[in-house]
């Protein structure tokens, strides 16, 4: 079961979830820019985890290789289609963030989707975002202390806003029954039956 390929239904469902999140990403960018403008990149760092929600949620639901990367690319693509004013950075970040989260799931052979792994994926995602922005916006020109501080805030944000919040959202979604034909939904039903017995 762990080594199945994504089928058409997986891809379309991932597309819809990521597109919805892509719109939220765009709104979050506006908020993030305000916070960054006022408090600098460190304040913005605390918001970074939100942009890793799509790979965490989709990988957790589908539990197949490629889901995380695809989800983040589609979320980024939706942002661009909806008219993001930072299309280039968004696409680059979408690729690096999705890839980083994907690597974490691959390390666990797409078998373990518990909270620590999801948090790790979120942290990897924000770490990749940090590296990408380090290159793009010339962080090497700033004092080492503030760059490290920023990295730390981003990684904390990745664990909480992406890993923890993403899991709790997907867990709430699975109770509605719409995910019954996906790995997460099946696990939830099995758990319920076990409890009933």
């Amino acid at each position: 079961m762990a080594n199945k390929r994504l089928n058409l239904r997986d891809i379309v469902v991932i597309s819809f979830i990521s597109a919805v999140l892509g719109v939220l990403y765009l709104l979050w960018v506006l908020l993030g820019q305000m916070v960054t403008g006022i408090f600098g990149p460190v304040g913005g760092g605390l918001m970074a985890g939100f942009w890793i929600l799509a790979p965490v949620i989709c990988a957790y639901i589908v539990q197949k290789p490629g889901a995380a990367l695809l989800a983040e690319l589609i979320a980024a693509g939706t942002e661009v289609m909806a008219g993001s004013v930072s299309a280039g950075a968004v696409l680059l970040l979408g690729f690096t963030q999705g890839l980083a989260a994907e690597i974490i799931f691959a390390v666990f052979f797409y078998r373990v989707f518990r909270l620590p792994v999801l948090m790790l994926a979120g942290m990897a995602g924000t770490f990749a975002a940090f590296l990408t922005q380090y290159m793009l916006y010339g962080f090497s020109q700033y004092a080492g202390s503030i760059v490290v501080f920023m990295l730390v805030t981003m990684i904390i944000s990745g664990a909480l806003l992406a890993g923890w919040a993403g899991k709790s959202f997907a867990d709430a979604l699975v109770k509605t029954g719409v995910l019954d034909r996906f790995a997460l939904g099946r696990q939830y039903r099995e758990g319920q039956q076990r409890n009933a017995v």
């Binding site: 239904r9 379309v12 469902v13 979830i17 919805v20 959202f169 979604l173 719409v178």
Partner: peptide
């Protein structure tokens, strides 16, 4: 949650139609 649930239902219908 209901918003996303609606999106997932719509996605499954779309995939079926495709």
């Amino acid at each position: 949650v209901p918003l996303m649930a609606g999106a997932v239902r719509k996605a499954e219908r779309t995939a079926l139609a495709m």
